[in-house]
């Protein structure tokens, strides 16, 4: 049994024991205790709650399938997807991105001078940057590198940043999601909490939260679209979407999911969406990176 599963087992058993003692302590206290637990859940408790929720919904889907999104749970969609993956539509983006990565800036330096471990560095992001006091995503780090070298920042939803990130994602395949929320800086936890709040807040004229679709109704269909679980939502970006006819970033997808419910989207790579990415990626801790991806 892999270590992560053992740990999860232990956690589950601990929860079980805790529950038993709580029941003994009386109903009044129990109610108070549960309410408190839900309020002050730690990130790890959040991740466990999400994981258990999906395991209960999809008992036959192994954890390592979640990076495949809706295709982990939608058999018909999966057949189409597997056919598409035979000739991946994102391949030209990887090639173009490699060229970008290797082409020096006007000052003669390259991306490698910013990212010494690069190009396969996706699992280092998003991360809390204590000095800047904010969540740094890979897209943001790319533009900080460009600007430090006298180059113009790239747009965040589409355009040249997409091939570059596709190449970096491709080179990161096989790495494990491992978002850390450092305990020595309370602002990091606040950023995580703000992302979590965003996820559960109902928005737009249609009054949905992200969780309404991807947690409460995951596996069900809106029209013909099967709603994917939140776990695995961050492992495979950028994504080539047939609907877009091109590849786009995670924040472009956020924008789309907000627009669909008639909520005015936030700024791509603005504070809200970066914190949202921080929270959402944390939930996928332990899952393997498999970008770039292809979706309907």
């Amino acid at each position: 049994m892999p270590a992560s599963q053992v740990i999860e087992r232990i956690c589950l058993e601990k929860r079980h024991i805790m529950k038993k003692t709580l029941i003994k302590m009386g109903a009044l206290f129990l109610a108070g205790g549960v309410a408190l637990a839900a309020q002050a859940a730690t990130p790890e408790e959040d991740r466990t709650a999400f994981t258990n929720h999906y395991k209960f919904r999809f008992p036959d889907v192994p954890m390592e399938e979640y990076p495949n999104g809706a295709y982990a749970i939608d058999k018909i969609g999966r057949e189409n997807w597997e056919a598409i993956e035979e000739f991946p539509p994102y391949e030209p983006f990887i090639d173009e991105g490699q060229e970008m990565w290797e082409t020096p800036f006007a000052n003669g330096k390259t991306y490698k001078d910013c990212f010494s471990d690069g190009p396969g560095i996706k699992s280092q992001y998003p991360r809390w940057d204590k000095k800047q006091g904010m969540v740094i995503t890979m897209a943001l780090a790319i533009n900080q590198c460009r600007e430090a070298n006298g180059e113009k920042a790239l747009k965040y939803k589409k355009g040249p940043i997409v091939p570059l990130m596709s190449y970096m994602a491709f080179e990161s395949r096989g790495q494990i999601t491992n978002v850390v929320i450092p305990e020595d800086d309370p602002r990091a936890m606040a950023a995580y909490e703000s992302g979590k709040k965003f996820y559960f807040t109902r928005r737009g004229q249609l009054n949905f939260s992200c969780a309404t679709c991807h947690v409460q109704n995951t596996g069900l269909k809106v029209r013909t679209e099967v709603l994917s679980p939140s776990l695995g939502h961050t492992t495979h970006w950028p994504v080539y979407r047939s609907k877009w006819g091109t590849a786009g970033t995670l924040h472009r997808r956020f924008t789309g999911c907000n627009r669909n419910i008639r909520a005015k989207p936030m700024k791509a790579q603005g504070e809200q969406y970066r914190n949202l990415e921080y929270f959402l990626t944390y939930l996928s801790n332990g899952l393997t990176l498999n970008g770039p991806g292809a979706r309907k």
């Binding site: 839900a38 408790e45 709650a49 929720h53 807040t201 004229q205 947690v215 409460q216």
Partner: peptide, 20 residues
């Protein structure tokens, strides 16, 4: 109405369908 929607959710209220 949209303001009311946002203001009424100032505090995070966890939905009942996600069990801890």
């Amino acid at each position: 109405i949209a303001y009311e929607q946002g203001a009424s959710q100032k505090e995070l209220r966890m939905p009942s369908y996600l069990k801890y």
